[in-house]
């Protein structure tokens, strides 16, 4: 028996919004430690890794490990039927071929449940090596989304250059060149507005704007985003999900032909 309950459906809606543009389907691997999903996008350029810890749920029970393959478009349709403040419970029997998603209004006067067919997805799991990143940038997630949106107008690619002075985003195309530089913030009142850079060595890498923009669909999950970079390895874009876990996107850099 698997059962997981969250106090607010809005969190699950935001998580789905953060992955459904990159992935059409995904396997939710459930164990007593929580729920994990790892999947590459269709073109195998990026990888999404979602971790939701069991202790972040209002109720969590998983007697036997189960893998639930879901069509994310179908799940998004179901989540559309929930009000943001509804409780949401996911339930499945061991070896079941369906999952039940139930919404309850705060006053318990409305209860709805949706049974969704599970899929057998033959998804390949990739081992992600431990990496010492040369640069780790933390910045407001809205600022990152704004930069990705703005620079995508000028080029398909953005060059991210991180030094101890700051982080620079550059896009060059037919129009010309756009540069956006962010310096580390001094003392700020609100931690969520700060930009911090932890640099061992300077790094310059090139990435596809299209994927960076897809990652920013996770912006509503977190006020801050963390970018981890190292020469010749994928960028990690991480959004923490408060008291519940995180979503990490890995993006292969563009390389010299």
């Amino acid at each position: 028996m698997f059962e997981a309950r969250l106090g607010q459906a809005t969190i699950l809606k935001k998580i789905l919004d953060a992955i459904k543009d990159l992935l059409t389907e995904g396997t939710f691997d459930c164990s007593d430690s929580g729920i994990q999903l790892q999947a590459m996008d269709n073109s195998h350029v990026s990888l999404v890794s979602l971790t939701l810890r069991s202790d972040g749920f209002d109720k969590f029970r998983c007697d036997r490990n189960i893998s639930m393959g879901m069509n994310l478009g179908s799940m998004a349709k179901i989540l559309k039927c929930a009000n943001n403040e509804d409780n949401v419970t996911m339930k499945a029997q061991d070896n079941a071929d369906t999952v039940t998603i139930m919404f309850e209004s705060a006053n318990q006067e409305k209860v709805s449940d949706y049974e969704m067919k599970l899929m057998n997805l033959d998804q390949e799991h990739l081992g992600i090596p431990e990496t010492e990143y040369s640069c780790v940038v933390r910045m407001p997630s809205m600022e990152f989304a704004r930069i990705c949106r703005d620079l995508a107008q000028f080029s398909e690619s953005v060059v991210i250059c991180c030094t101890k002075e700051g982080v620079k985003f550059t896009a060059s195309g037919d129009v010309g060149t756009a540069n956006i530089k962010l310096a580390q913030t001094g003392s700020v009142d609100k931690e969520e507005e700060s930009v911090s850079i932890d640099m061992q060595e300077p790094v310059t890498l090139t990435f596809a704007c299209r994927y960076l923009n897809a990652f920013t669909k996770a912006t509503p999950l977190s006020t801050q985003v963390q970018l981890s970079m190292c020469a010749d390895v994928p960028l990690v874009v991480e959004y923490a999900i408060k008291d519940l876990g995180y979503i990490r996107y890995y993006l292969a850099p563009k390389i010299e032909d």
């Binding site: 350029v45 990888l47 032909d257």
Partner: peptide, 14 residues
């Protein structure tokens, strides 16, 4: 000219 690499080239299949 830069080309897009695959994420598979960086991570190993489990």
């Amino acid at each position: 000219k830069k080309i897009q690499g695959s994420i598979r080239n960086y991570f190993t299949a489990k």
